[in-house]
Design a protein around this nucleic acid. Structure first.
Lengths: 363, 363
DNA sequence: TAGAGCCTGGACAACGTTGTCAGGCGCGCG
DNA sequence: CGCGCGCCTGACAACGTTGTCCAGGCTCTA
């Protein structure tokens, strides 16, 4: 490292002052902004004429338009959209509330929502609820106070009656990944039940009967649905499920590790595990790698590099981008006034076999 | 899958109408919103008194406050922040422009920015530039028109003079991950040069002399700095670098694969590779897995599951969350009026050894 | 009991933009 | 030559909120 510049001991940061401000910079007062009135005065025209030019409205002589453009350029004018919003009623922005921006599952989802918003000329405001219903509500209402045109919500809570006045007032609202609670609204979901059932059936088809299930907290809809899928697959195959094979709770590595190790020990350990989301899967992979026997694994949600592990990880993949895209498109169609009755849309999942789900039961 | 509900053949979506709206719902006109005036009328008080209650200002009798609260409740009133912003000048929101929300590197970064914003009572508006300078500018100016209080920018372009009027007008602006072009502004960077140099020196220390470098397009600052670090390490060790060992360009899998395969073939192939970002690393791992000999690898940026591969992937990790946090904190300190001169802050990187970087040169 | 001071409440303007409407000018037609 | 029509242009109000300022009523004290 370059040792000539001072380094903050505690943080290790290196701090270098930037070059001094260039001398030719005009002495402008900070914090002031030219308005259309200023532009009008400078161009020697009326206020409304400036508005016409800025918005590309017809009815302005080329000569006048040029004068106005010059004044705008000279003053560095930029229209104040807050005032515009106040006047027009629409903000051309939508809100997205998800659980955690840093979770790799939500990256593609929010990117997809953003793309659709961009195509409709809208900006995206987003916030993370951190799986806290109160924070979800706080965020949603703050966005409504900003008068976003619409809201895409990945619910943390299970009661969304607080949004009723907003929806009535015209905020187009679509729920994604999990259904809304106690209100009628558009919902876009993955086929959590079917996906989990297919994944577990896949393990059964490869000879497993003692299959473990490790999932998220049961109050979360997706977790409950995936458990239901597991139970359905086992029942379809006529396999009675033992309580010790199922573990639901927080997805932190410590708990998941304990749960997995419990299922894998004792007199009749499981020979396969179904892990019900990406965070759980990552920890389960670590635990299985330490086992003397090869344990089969199918995970819900795809994972980067899953194909490079030994063995490759078989997963039930959901299409996060499609979830986001579908929800956002529906939101804008509603804004265009096309839709009336709320609908529930379910997207299919896809089983991707890579090896871990095809392992035979270990003696 | 449940076969009783209709399925759209093309998309595989299942569509179910939600239950009919509840009958007890009052017939409200959509799109209308009560204002403070309405609340005042209903409560039988003046407009300003409502404002006082809504903002928790003193000088209102408990009895009056109760009456106002009841009216707010009854009408479902929610303050219109657009009008508030217009009046007050501050929006309590900041903008974040990054390259791609879906890139796992930017998830923790934007999450960190959001956390800091939240602590300051501000919302986060964000957009992706898709590495397109024009789109970056378009987004930045749109956010300025919304009168965001500040801007965190991961630059796609290399000329940011277009932001000068905005910064002068008081938009607190901080650049992250890459420096700003042609303007003085706060910058928060990782030590790309030092990190790359350390990573390459690590390979040299394990006996390698023929070391390849695969990086991003050289116009991107981080890519250039990491290449500089590679060259410095090689020079420090007195190893002359051959042109065929270096490859810079787009990070799509096809190009990276061709580049890696080229370095690994021929009469004197490289025995180790330094991959200069997360996307490159993922592809290089795939290519190396197909090679008959064990090739050493050090990558810039950490990768999930890197520890579970065979061998584990040695990386130079940067702290994305710290980048975002530092930038956002600086932005808010500037908003508080504490800062004057722009600074350049550099965060250290960390070498994490997991096996792939410690392999000896293969015969 | 009267005056001073405090506390509560409300009228009014202003924030910067856009929609409405009317005025002025030039040109074509009768 | 005069009238009417159409095209530009600008004055004005309104969007919903907050800051300023003043009025009225109350209490407390001399």
């Amino acid at each position: 490292m370059d040792r000539r510049t001072p380094v903050d001991d505690r943080t290790g940061r290196r701090i270098v002052p930037e070059t001094a401000r260039r001398a030719d910079r005009p002495p402008t007062r900070y914090g002031s902004r030219p308005t259309m009135k200023d532009v009008a005065a400078r161009a020697g025209v009326g206020l409304k004429t400036v508005s016409r030019v800025v918005n590309g409205e017809p009815g302005v002589t080329p000569d006048t338009e040029r004068r106005v453009q010059e004044a705008i350029e000279a003053l560095g004018f930029r229209r104040n959209d807050s005032a515009r919003v106040l006047r027009k009623g629409r903000t051309a922005s939508i809100g997205l509330i998800l659980e955690d921006l840093a979770d790799p599952f939500y990256g593609p989802l929010s990117r997809a929502v953003e793309e659709v918003a961009r195509a409709h000329g809208a900006l995206l405001i987003n916030g993370s609820s951190a799986e806290d219903p109160e924070r979800e509500q706080e965020l949603a209402l703050a966005l409504c106070a900003r008068r976003v045109d619409g809201l895409v919500v990945i619910p943390a809570g299970d009661d969304h009656r607080y949004l009723e006045p907003e929806i009535k007032a015209g905020v187009a609202t679509v729920f994604v990944d999990r259904p809304a609670g106690h209100i009628d609204a558009d919902v876009v979901l993955s086929d959590n039940f079917g996906g989990a059932r297919d994944g577990v059936a896949h393990l059964i088809a490869h000879g497993h009967r003692r299959i473990g299930f490790i999932g998220d907290m049961p109050r979360i809809h997706t977790a409950a649905e995936r458990l239901r899928g597991y139970r359905a697959a086992m029942e379809d195959a006529g396999i009675p499920v033992e309580d010790s094979w199922m573990s639901l709770g927080a997805t932190d590595p410590e708990r998941v590790r304990r749960a997995a190790e419990a299922m894998l020990s004792g007199p009749a350990p499981v020979t396969a595990v179904f892990s019900a989301n990406n965070r759980v899967t990552v920890t389960v992979i670590r635990v299985l790698a330490e086992q003397p026997r090869r344990i089969a694994l199918v995970g819900f949600d795809d994972i980067e590099l899953a194909d490079l592990l030994q063995p490759g990880v078989t997963v039930v993949a959901q299409d996060a981008a499609a979830l986001g895209r579908t929800a956002a498109e529906r939101l804008f169609r509603r804004l265009d006034g096309a839709l009336v009755a709320p609908e529930r849309i379910e997207l299919p999942t896809r089983l991707i076999t890579r090896g871990s789900g095809e392992l035979p039961p270990a003696g």
